[in-house]
Amino acid sequence: MEDTRAALAAPVRPKRFLLRWFLWVTLGETAGFLAPAVVAVFVINPDAAGALAWLTVAGAAEGTAMGLAQAHVLKRTLPGLRVRSWTVRTAAGAALAWLIGLSPSTFAGQWQAWPPVLQFAVAVPAALLLLCSIGLAQWPELRRNLPNGGWWVAGSAVAWCVGLGVFFAVAPPLWQPGQPPTTVIAIGVAAAILMAAGMALVTGLVMGRLLAAKESA
C-alpha cells in the first residue's frame, strides 16, 4: 500500500508547489475569515460569554476552509493524506486558537486580579499554544505521510506570527468608532487577505522544504 501511494505521489517542483500552495491557502484562509468577521459585526451576543462561543464556532469554520485548501494542494504529493482528518484537525486547532486569543479580553476582570507572576506564568504558555495550535492539531495526520513532519509545528507557528503581525499592523489603525458595518468588514477582509498571504507564503516555504527532504531521503 505504501509503495502504491508513493508511486501515485506527484514529484515536488518547489516553485510550482509554492505557487499553488500560496494561491489556494491564501484563498481558503481569506474565505474562512469571513465567518468570524461577519459574526463579529452582525451576530455576536451582547454578553461576553456568548461572543466567545460564537467566535470560537466561527473560528472552526475558518479552519475548515483553510484545511480544505491545504489538503487540496497536499493531496497531490501526499496521496495518503486523509482530507477529512486534516480538515477536522485544522478546524479544531483554529477553534482553540480563537478560544485562547479571546479569553484574556473576555475574562479580563478575573485574570487581572491575579498576581503578576501568575499572569505571566499563564500568558506565556497560552500564547505559545495559540501559535502552535493549528500545527499541533495537524501534526498527527501529517506524520503518517511525512517522517520529518514535526518541524511543521514550528513552521506553522512562525507563519502565524507573521500573519497575525500583518493583520494587527493594518486593521486596528483603520478601524474607527462609528464606522458602518460594511466598512468594518471591508477593512477586516483587506487585512485578512494580507494576513493570509503572509501565513501562506511562510507555510508554503516550510512545507516545500519538508516535502523536498522526504523525496531526497
Rank of each mutant, 00 (worst) to 15 (best):
V88N: 00
W152C: 02
F42E: 12
A127K: 10
P79V: 03
A9Y: 04
P173I: 00
H72E: 14
A92E: 02
L128W: 08
L128D: 09
G165F: 08
L194Y: 05
W160T: 03
P147T: 03
A196W: 02
R84D: 07
A69G: 10
D3I: 14
A53S: 02
A6S: 12
L142Q: 03
G67K: 07
G93W: 00
G80H: 04
A154G: 10
A157Q: 06
L8V: 02
R84S: 12
E62H: 11
Q112H: 11
A192Q: 14
G50W: 03
V170W: 06
W152Y: 12
L128P: 01
S105E: 14
E62P: 00
E29C: 07
M66C: 09
E215C: 01
P115A: 14
T64C: 12
W160L: 09
C132G: 09
G59H: 06
S216G: 00
K75P: 01
L34Q: 13
M195T: 07
T90P: 00
F168H: 08
M1K: 08
G208W: 04
V166C: 04
F168P: 00
L211G: 05
P147D: 07
S216T: 13
A190Y: 06
L129M: 13
G178M: 08
G149C: 01
S156M: 03
V202S: 02
P36N: 13
A65C: 15
A159P: 10
G80W: 01
A108P: 00
S105A: 14
L131S: 05
C161M: 15
M195P: 00
G165R: 07
E215Q: 13
V117K: 06
M199N: 10
K75W: 01
T203F: 07
L136M: 09
A113D: 06
L142N: 03
A6I: 11
A65W: 04
S85I: 02
W139G: 06
A6N: 14
M207F: 09
A95Y: 03
L55Q: 10
G50C: 05
S156F: 10
F167S: 02
W98F: 15
D3T: 15
A58K: 05
G204E: 09
T87A: 07
G67R: 06
A157N: 04
T26C: 12
L52C: 05
D3G: 04
A171Q: 04
L118D: 05
W24M: 14
L8F: 03
W151E: 06
L68P: 01
V43P: 01
T90G: 15
